[in-house]
Design a binder for these strands. Structure first.
Lengths: 392, 392
DNA sequence: TTGAATCATCAAGTAAGTTGAGTTAATTGC
DNA sequence: GCAATTAACTCAACTTACTTGATGATTCAA
């Protein structure tokens, strides 16, 4: 059961839907933009753009935002996203709990909740997700018409793989497609991804990757994941499991271990535990870092820096991204420390003279990163043309 | 100068062009197919498909191929590609020579030539390419109207990178976009890629990857490259340099070296030279293998197997492909030996129970692989809808 | 103040897909 | 063997959504 996307024919209806999303995406990317500029960029006539803009206006997805001063000619009316025009529900399924959030059209969270997850079979999880969706929609007081869809984040990899059993993936979905299952159960458009992919999309929608369109997001969950975005779209692989970088073997202290055994939240916890510190929360790590906890500093500089450098070299040479973003369950200060201390390989396609952006960036961090990413998946889909043009 | 593809608006004309290429692609993938079936698969009406098929027929790109026996109802007229309906020119630029080939619509070579390359500046290379194009078109006796375009393969990486100077990339194109440059010079649609990407596309068009749509092609050129295809499209990265796997450091005999220092055509040549054998051609390697040359066998089993296994683990976990294909400048027998002797990692997302295809396949090999790939780029483009739908 | 430049709208025109009725050609069942 | 059934195919009218060209609006520059 590969997840291949199939090319579909274009007709008037689909063309309109495509154009609508393309226009919306250009509005988002530009912040503010006028109709003529969209027309020039998209190859549509100004008339066509005008019609679409008027549609989007009456749907409340964009708003008029004054006129732009130009050198000459009539100043163009500017349009921008209307954050309250639509909302996305994001739900993250973790072993112990369900987190839910609502994002507005600009990706800003407007509500969130947490529910412990007691029953772990298919029905139990499904009921918990359905309940979380209802609860968060009620809490945020959203009319059903403004809900764009539900994004769900769950641990990967999806399906039975050689990694099964090593992580915390939800084996209840080995036999059913989680997307189909939840689309049915929630009776709403649903997007399902693993945490790293969601985090990458979150960075794209409202994070460090705004303005980029090809980048990688190295995600610190329990293990280590990688979300890959090329031309604004997820590179998911044949079965949705691309980016399982944590399982690539690296040499650490002379022996080959999976990358995530050397570089991950669990790895640092284990290192700290060996030194007698029981630190499990992000806040705890932040405190330890602020106090320059010796064990933590050793881990950062002696244990983590080299595998991180190795990981980045792999990512850069395999993907040629505009940037690599670090995100997930680590405190900002630790990401910043890693970023400033890591040695980026000279021999890398990303080592371009005259770069204008850093090779390594810090993205969103904290325990809610995955949940926010779940919502971002929906937001992103609302801006992604179903019929996507390939230039040249 | 990133190579971002920009989403473009859909209008009637572009919709038609998209649908035409989609229909053509479905005909190619199916081998033989009827109109109703295309309509069902594409979401278009049978009438629309009928109109497009009649266009394609009158352009000579497809031909009627009888009717298919079915259970009931009128048996559908079957259509298949007409190999002589269009031709692609492929040109490979190497340090010492220019190779050119002509492929028919099915990807079968119908002509080829080799010219030594004496002058290596921008003008010299350009003139040689222009001359090679004219010569091969004349040799194959093609009417201009049947030439779909020119594919050009040249050593990567493109642009100035941290790998510059380490390989044989064409620094004359550091400042100009080779695609724009050759489009102008040849006055034809041009596609430019590195050898590994071209090889991957060649496998897709007429090789081991027919029927796959997400796979990786590990390419043995002088160094080691990787071509990545997701959903039938190249994953090129932000600057066209994705897949520079040869520069990823691996440990070989206890020290960290770039992967291609351990695993490549040059690596085996060097190993053989150290043992006193001066073998430089693919044929020479094939003979040495047939003779079970001890140095070669040692290289294969002691030196090459482990880095290859490592490379495949990286590829599988980073990309989650349907398969990894080995191709390029090695004899078939050596690829087969490597495939049968390499240990594929247990801990890999590609280690799926119930797989129906092998994880590792042999693709096209030999010295012309790159040149054929150049032509395949053009063929592939002729079948790739410019407006590509994303399912769901 | 006039002209150039640009944005914007209107109304007519057009390309291309859809729809629905009717035709053709095969198999199945009586 | 013949009618019923099924599916592919065609024709012509219809619909959608984009394009085109004329006209007007707004601003800056000479």
């Amino acid at each position: 059961m590969s997840i291949t996307t199939e090319t579909v024919g274009a007709n008037a209806e689909r063309a309109r839907s495509h154009n609508r999303q393309m226009v919306l995406d250009r509005v988002r990317q530009a912040g503010q933009i006028g109709r003529a500029e969209i027309a020039r960029g998209s190859g549509l006539s100004t008339q066509a753009v005008s019609n679409i803009i008027s549609d989007l206006l009456s749907d409340g997805l964009i708003s008029e935002q004054g006129r732009k001063a130009t050198t000459r000619g009539q100043p163009p009316v500017q349009y921008g996203l209307n954050p309250v025009g639509g909302y996305a529900v994001g739900i993250e399924i973790r072993p112990d709990a369900i987190f839910a959030t609502v994002l507005d059209l600009c990706g800003k969270p407007v509500a969130s909740l947490r529910r412990t997850l007691a029953v772990h079979d298919l029905n139990g999880v499904t009921e918990a997700v359905v309940a979380a969706k209802s609860a968060i929609i009620e809490e945020a007081d959203l009319p059903a018409s403004k809900v764009l869809g539900v994004g769900i984040v769950m641990p990967g990899p999806f399906g039975r793989t050689g990694l099964s059993g090593t992580g915390s993936e939800l084996s209840i979905f080995h036999e059913v497609s989680p997307t189909d299952w939840f689309t049915e159960a929630l009776n709403t458009p649903v997007v399902v991804e693993n945490d790293a992919n969601a985090a990458a999309v979150a960075e794209l929608v409202a994070g460090a990757a705004r303005g980029l369109d090809t980048f990688a997001c190295l995600y610190f969950g329990n293990g280590l994941g990688l979300g890959l975005i090329q031309d604004g779209r997820l590179v998911r692989g044949a079965f949705g499991n691309a980016g399982e970088i944590g399982h690539i073997p690296v040499t650490s202290k002379g022996r080959a271990v999976p990358l995530e055994a050397a570089l991950s939240r669990l790895a640092v916890q284990k290192h700290l535990a060996n030194a007698g510190f029981d630190i499990r929360s992000s806040d705890g790590l932040a405190e330890a870092y602020a106090a320059r906890n010796a064990a933590l500093m050793t881990w950062l500089d002696a244990a983590a820096a080299e595998p991180l450098s190795h990981a980045i070299t792999i990512i850069e040479n395999m993907f040629d991204p505009e940037a690599v973003i670090l995100g997930g369950a680590m405190p900002d200060a630790i990401f910043d420390h890693l970023i400033s201390s890591v040695t980026l390989a000279e021999r890398s396609v990303s080592n371009r003279p005259g770069r204008t952006t850093d090779r390594l960036l810090r993205g969103a961090s904290g325990r809610m990163t995955g949940t926010l990413g779940a919502g971002a998946l929906v937001i992103n889909r609302a801006f992604t043309p179903r019929i996507a043009a390939v230039a040249r």
